[in-house]
Amino acid sequence: MAGTIALPQEIMPALQGAVPATIVTCALDGEPNVTTVSQVFSVDQNHVALSFQFFSKTIRNVRENPYVMVQVINPMDFSTWLLELRYDRTETEGPLFDDMDIKLEAIASMTGMSGIFKLRGADVYEVLSVKKAPWRRD
């Protein structure tokens, strides 16, 4: 725990799924891949999780090459955050999985997607760095 990067409190509104996040991964053959994910969840001070409902290039890539970069946006002030992450593990049960699964089920059940749009797993990442992107005027 000690010495690792801690998520600042002000990033928390960006981890609630209000604005889709963008994630860049890279396959072992060197091909980069960009995609959007609906939500990056905060797990603890220095871990986040991504949900997946379908197997994708992103999921395959991180199992080959664990380094990824993610962009999340705070819906309150539109501040944009860049996180360097390293894939750590996949959880398919337990409190974190349940928490993400319950949130997904709550939404899916309102759009007729119960049982279809199901959480397959929660990929947990260690946060290597976090910074506010210098792309915006303050």
Binding site: V24, T25, C26, L28, Y67, V68, E84
Partner: peptide
Amino acid sequence: GTRDATLRP
């Protein structure tokens, strides 16, 4: 998305 020589995205 791009990546560097060490495959960091």
